[in-house]
Amino acid sequence: MFDFLRLLSFGPDGWGDEIARGALLTIELALVTLPVGIAIGLGVALAKDSKSAAVKMLANAYTTVFRGLPELLTLFIVYYGGQMLLTRLAGLFVEGASVEVNQFVAGVVALGLVLGAFSSEVLYAAIRAVPRGQKEAAAALGLSKMRVFRLVTFPQLWRVALPGLSNNWMVLLKDTSLVSVIAISDLMRQTAIAVGVTKQPFFFYLIACLIYLVFSAISSAVFSRLEARASRGFRRVGGH
């Protein structure tokens, strides 16, 4: 038992500090990806709601592809393919130029693309849930399109979308573990390094699982508060 505690200690012969650093990076990665993915998702959702058939089709194609590809594959394509593509593009403008996509960026882009596809479904459903008449009424009051979205559509959309987005976040949190295969020193990779040195796979992978579990638990607590908050106005108006 004390041996195991020593393995987790912070310091030269323990792995506590390495694993904690990895856990922190996992959180950072997820937090940076979240706004990127939601922004993509919102854009795609609005495109799906567009009147133009071509825009709609593009948006649907995007969702089909990034929902259908394994996240691991998306990650490889972005990491290797993205770098080659950008280098080639840069080479067109500057002779012998090279573009460096660091792993963190590749991870954010790949996970963001996936999150964008999944959250666009949630957001699209939420947009549709806001009755048309409300938008028309707001427009009749002389509000600009932007203000209609900000004042009328968005607050309601947010309430409807929150449970779905909370689900998306949970999936994202777990998907971050995949970036360890492109050499980002996240929780999973630091754990693998500890396993390589100590030869204690069961213990360390179990610890990693428990840390992810704690993240999930904290997230669901935060989201249920957010949901309660977002629904306040709704309860009052609806009177139940």
Binding site: V94, G96, S98, V101
Partner: peptide
């Protein structure tokens, strides 16, 4: 920090075009 990491990442993607001088 998170902010510097994002800034660094953005920089790297936008402007890490190491130019022609790389040959000497």
């Amino acid at each position: 920090s998170l902010a510097t990491r994002i800034a660094a990442a953005a920089l790297m993607i936008a402007a890490a075009v190491t130019g022609a001088s790389a040959k000497d």
